[in-house]
Design a protein around this nucleic acid. Sequence first.
DNA 1: CTGTTAGCGCGTTCAC
DNA 2: GTGAACGCGCTAACAG
Lengths: 347, 347
Amino acid sequence: MSKRKISIEDIARQAGVSHSTVSRALRDSPLISSKVREEIKKLAQEMNYVPNAIAQSLQNQRTYTVGVIVTSIADPFFGELVQGIEEVAKLAGLNVLLNASHGDFEQEIAAIENFHYRRVDGILVADSRVSKQYTKQLTQFTVPTVLINIETEDQGETFHSVAIDDRLGGTLAVEHLIELGHSAIGYLGVGDGSKAAQQRLEGYRMALTQAGLPQNHNWVAIPEQDNQTINDIDIGKKMLPQLIDAGVTGIFCYNDMVAVGALLACKELNISVPQDLSLVGFDNIALSSYVTPPLTTVSQRMVEMGNAAMNMLLELLEGKTVENLLLSPFLVKRSSTNPSCVLLPWG
Amino acid sequence: MSKRKISIEDIARQAGVSHSTVSRALRDSPLISSKVREEIKKLAQEMNYVPNAIAQSLQNQRTYTVGVIVTSIADPFFGELVQGIEEVAKLAGLNVLLNASHGDFEQEIAAIENFHYRRVDGILVADSRVSKQYTKQLTQFTVPTVLINIETEDQGETFHSVAIDDRLGGTLAVEHLIELGHSAIGYLGVGDGSKAAQQRLEGYRMALTQAGLPQNHNWVAIPEQDNQTINDIDIGKKMLPQLIDAGVTGIFCYNDMVAVGALLACKELNISVPQDLSLVGFDNIALSSYVTPPLTTVSQRMVEMGNAAMNMLLELLEGKTVENLLLSPFLVKRSSTNPSCVLLPWG
DNA sequence: CTGTTAGCGCGTTCAC
DNA sequence: GTGAACGCGCTAACAG
């Protein structure tokens, strides 16, 4: 903590007053004559006084710190989310304590305990692939907590959530393909069994049902559950061929990374997108607009989600009651989707 | 800070001993009989005791917290860096307090002061585009600080640095193009006047000089200094045409984002990469391998840089003396570079 | 208006 | 081996 720094006592001695007078002066207490107040402030300035947040926290019972848990900070998805969180935290005078869980349950628990140990004012947890048992283990704790993209059942005093409407997102993606005339529409997912994955698939099915289009179990490609170690890009690469063989002309992918993987596989297989195949992603990460062709995708608005979550936490800290939030995603049309071939003159 | 939690006093009362006995027992002091020690530990467990880091810090004069300043967390470059930092911080039992400066000098100073206020044990600053005056303003502070990709002149007790050898990186990129037979090689840079920008340009020039190749000031494209608001992608897009007009067959770009911008411009102009033009980036961000064609680039190894910086900080915290580090980048060959046309049969 | 005192939770002498 | 007392730096309650 660096060499010993000067305290209010030091400046009190220098000014010939008591330390509490200094404390009051520095905090603009009306009890202090404006004359000595300015004097003390000037002195503090000169002496390079920096108040000690630790001592204040011990007294206030507040640390003005929030703990944030993400799967991986290197993942652009979480990067944007954290940015959204940090933005509004900074405005509120709060600081962000960052922990990465790497999707590991043990590490998440450890992070929570660590935050508790450090007496953070609130906690934000973002990890869409964590299991639900999660929340139960933490019920003993009583720190205001906002879950981002995690479903909770028992949301009492401490647990609240901000999430994206994954089902709606899936529906939007598939409706877009339907509008373009596709009728053999596939889904390329991941096998993590998360709520998000279920909901997006459900949205896919709803859209097809609503349009009276056929469904085929060969059109839904999801890798084995235990393949958690392989990344999303590789999932996309690996699973694409079987959907092609099944004869789909449009695919809704679980997320952009999977879609990019599928796109790369298409290149290798000489399938041109969007002429031969239309691809829709999910998330709208920056990458999605830089690949060729730029990806049509469902936008998650990560930054806004971070803003919303942090704002919700702020309200909780003020003692207000809050409603869980379900954010609506929207479709971003780019160049990876085309009208279905069957509608085209040469189709 | 949640509802009042139990303290060592609470458990002391329960155990019928004094709070200092509890303190000692919990810290495995040899002064305590192993019998009561286990007893107290069990009791603490049962009572869900969580030590108070704030109180400990006030006593220890250490917070086991490091402050990290980045330009933007959403930038994948910094995301990976922070991941590298967080990894080794976690292993050392330290926590990361994150602040984004958005490249704004005022915000950086504010972040530093904030960290000082919170009595962090050390500070990590990563912002390759910050001006040099920076360090001077902070000399008054005495917290161990490691600068990442920032040059410092007066490196005394508190300031140290980990950086990438930008000049070498520039040289590697250009030598690669030279090996492929290119002789009209351009540089596409940014106008932020940073040390990194200067060094990469210098590396470019050195490689050309060393190979005895001609240089042409039309082959160096750098936007105006004041265009700081436009992003790197747009810089690449905007500046590419003039290099094409100048007749270059290969371009070394300041970073991957600029290179991607150039690539997008090529698509619009119907210039095919790498057939008509070879492109080399810098950074090796994830994006660079997903664009079409995948970018040949100079790798920064952000995660390792984060590791190194945090390790250096750890040594400083242990009172050791450290040497500044200059990491060597290396070339990643992918598909955006081809032999120069003039060497090919149909050239 | 200002000074004195107490206490936030914990670690650490210094006595017994 | 254990308890009492002090201090870390600050805020707040109580006196004057």
